[in-house]
Amino acid sequence: MDALKSAGRALIRSPSLAKQSWGGGGRHRKLPENWTDTRETLLEGMLFSLKYLGMTLVEQPKGEELSAAAIKRIVATAKASGKKLQKVTLKVSPRGIILTDNLTNQLIENVSIYRISYCTADKMHDKVFAYIAQSQHNQSLECHAFLCTKRKMAQAVTLTVAQAFKVAFEFWQVSKEEKEKRDKASQEGGDVLGARQDCTPPLKSLVATGNLLDLEETAKAPLSTVSANTTNMDEVPRPQALSGSSVVWELDDGLDEAFSRLAQSRTNPQVLDTGLTAQDMHYAQCLSPVDWDKPDSSGTEQDDLFSF
Rank of each mutant, 00 (worst) to 15 (best):
V236C: 11
A76P: 03
I132D: 01
T149R: 10
V207N: 07
V75L: 11
L141V: 07
D191W: 11
E59W: 05
G275N: 08
S260T: 04
L212V: 13
Q163K: 13
G244H: 05
F129L: 01
I97D: 00
T120A: 09
S175A: 03
H282A: 10
A145H: 00
A156Q: 15
K87W: 08
A18T: 15
R261I: 11
T200Q: 14
F306N: 00
L50N: 04
E40H: 15
E250T: 14
M233F: 04
Q240K: 15
E235Y: 03
T230E: 08
V167N: 06
N34T: 13
A69V: 10
G82N: 01
F171H: 13
Q279G: 06
L66A: 05
T200E: 09
L147C: 03
M233Q: 08
Y131Q: 00
T218L: 06
Y52H: 12
E235V: 13
Q86H: 07
I74R: 01
S67A: 10
T77K: 11
A133V: 08
I116L: 02
L276D: 10
D183G: 13
L212Y: 11
M153C: 09
K150E: 15
F169M: 02
S243M: 05
G299L: 05
K150F: 14
L203G: 06
Q134L: 12
A228C: 10
S224N: 12
R182N: 15
T100V: 05
G54R: 00
A195S: 03
R151G: 02
Y114S: 04
S49C: 14
S245R: 10
Q86W: 12
L103N: 08
K152D: 12
V192G: 04
Q173M: 08
Q60I: 12
D183E: 15
G194W: 02
K5F: 01
P295M: 06
G190Q: 11
K19G: 15
P222T: 14
D253E: 15
D280M: 07
S117I: 01
A228M: 02
V236G: 12
L206C: 06
Q279S: 04
V88H: 01
K87M: 09
I74L: 03
T104E: 05
A284P: 11
M233I: 09
Q139H: 12
V111Y: 13
K72S: 14
S112E: 04
G96W: 09
V226A: 09
E180V: 14
L85E: 01
E33H: 14
A164G: 14
H137Y: 14
Q163A: 12
D101L: 13
A258H: 08
S307P: 07
K176D: 02
E217Q: 05
T104F: 01
C286V: 10
H282Q: 12
L203A: 09
S112V: 02
P202D: 09
M55G: 11
L159S: 15
N232W: 05
S227L: 05
S227G: 13
L215I: 12
N232K: 07
T100G: 14
S227P: 11
D252A: 07
R266D: 04
K184W: 09
L47S: 09
P201L: 08
L147S: 00
F146Y: 09
F169V: 05
D280C: 06
G210Q: 15
G244V: 07
L141M: 13
F169I: 03
L31S: 12
P61Q: 13
G45E: 15
T267W: 08
E65M: 15
A78Q: 00
E170Y: 05
L251W: 06
I116V: 05
D2P: 03
Q279W: 14
K30T: 15
S205R: 13
S140V: 15
S112R: 07
D122P: 00
T230K: 06
F165H: 02
S67D: 00
L203V: 07
F165A: 02
K204F: 04
A133G: 13
K79D: 00
D253Y: 04
L212P: 10
N110L: 07
P239I: 08
T277W: 01
S307W: 04
P15D: 02
T277Q: 11
G275W: 04
L305V: 06
P295C: 02
K127N: 00
K220L: 04
A18V: 06
V88F: 01
E250L: 05
Q155W: 13
D280A: 10
A278D: 06
A80N: 11
E64M: 14
A156R: 14
E177I: 10
D126K: 00
P201V: 04
S21D: 15
M281D: 06
S245C: 11
A121K: 02
V88Q: 09
D303L: 04
L213I: 05
Y114R: 02
G190N: 04
A76H: 02
P94L: 03
T230H: 03
G96I: 02
G82Q: 06
R13Y: 14
L99A: 15
K220V: 06
N105A: 06
V88L: 07
E257Q: 08
A7N: 14
G23H: 10
